[in-house]
Simulated scan of single mutants.
Amino acid sequence: MAFETSADDTCAAVVTSDMKILSNVVIKQTEIHAQFGGIQPTNAVLAHQRNAPVAAKRALVEAGLTIKDIDGIAFTKGPGMGVCLGVGSQTAKAIAAIHDIPVVGVHHMQGHALTALLTSQPNPPQFPFLALLVSGGHNMLVLVKAADEFEIVANTLDTTVGRVLDKLTRELGLGYTGQQLEQFYTTCKATPVVPEDFGPFGQPMLKRAWSFSAHHSHMERYMHKRQANGQPDLTDGERLGLIDRLMQAVGEHLTRPFRDVLMDLVARNIKVNDLVVGGGVASNLYLRRRIEQAARDRTAGQPGMRVHYPPPALCTDNAVMIAVASMHRFLKGDFDDLSCAPNTKWSIEDCKLTRVP
């Protein structure tokens, strides 16, 4: 059984040791935070406190089990919002203490990186593989050497793709999440039109890193200039045109480090055949296509990699990924103490096992 409460979704799931999903409960808080234009921590933690017992009960009922059938409980230890992480941590540890069940704290992005071990069966990615992890809080390319061994080979220098998309969603008056932006982008029937006064994006020339702050600043300055000049509101067609230009720019920049990273791996005699794309932004269909094309190109003298995408419901925050990422530790008997506390600034490179029986 697993819990995930690192941000604004209250999640619980039950997964078997042979990677079968018995239940997957996600209780969202979108309506609560819409009025604030983003996650409001006080309201988020209160909602988690209301929802966590409900999610736990539903997960067991939908799995057709009772707590006596549970052999281990995993929870997101970090990174994330401390007050939110605390609800999932305390829920998991309280249940574990009462019923004498072992617990394991899991790194949130480790969960995203390893989800494909379940969803890509019967041909899962083989270690070592690359994981492109893109979300509101993270933007990194990671060499996954084992279930508990990670090396960051490219990282953002400032903000993330997810945050840029979230902010553009607010600027365009479409909500506050990138998912709402994509929903508009994929369902609006208007013809895309790029406003004549909108200039092209500049692309930072980085080899093994990203910088997305320029993309956000470019859009923000344009929107503020329109407002200052008293220009009329954007039409739906103009909104679509701006979104399309941004998607093209961030898609190009997101895939730019691939070649340099692969060349470095070849020089180190490390061969990778698989790329996993995880995190909330991995559910964006346009970026999926752009990433897949870049990964399958023959780069650095190697054949293109197999690309693995979890289903959209398992790209955004969920407890199934936390269960998957904890499984190797439960099977090895490497458990955490009940005093284990959340870690809001935990690096994925620090996930290595600390105690093996």
Rank of each mutant, 00 (worst) to 15 (best):
C11V: 11
C11K: 09
A13I: 07
A13G: 03
V14A: 09
V15I: 11
V15S: 02
T16Q: 12
S17L: 13
L22H: 01
N24H: 14
E31H: 13
E31M: 13
A34W: 05
Q35E: 13
F36V: 06
G37A: 01
G38V: 06
N43Y: 15
A44R: 06
A44Q: 00
L46V: 14
L46T: 09
A47W: 03
H48Q: 01
Q49I: 14
N51S: 02
A52W: 07
P53G: 05
A55N: 07
A56D: 11
R58P: 07
A59F: 13
L60K: 11
G64E: 04
L65F: 10
T66N: 07
I67K: 04
D69T: 10
G72C: 08
I73V: 15
A74Y: 09
P79G: 03
M81N: 05
G86C: 00
G88E: 01
A94F: 14
A94H: 12
A96K: 06
A97W: 15
H99C: 03
V103A: 00
V104M: 10
G111M: 08
H112F: 12
A116F: 14
L117H: 03
L117D: 01
P122G: 10
N123M: 08
P124Y: 07
F129I: 02
F129L: 03
A131N: 10
L132Q: 08
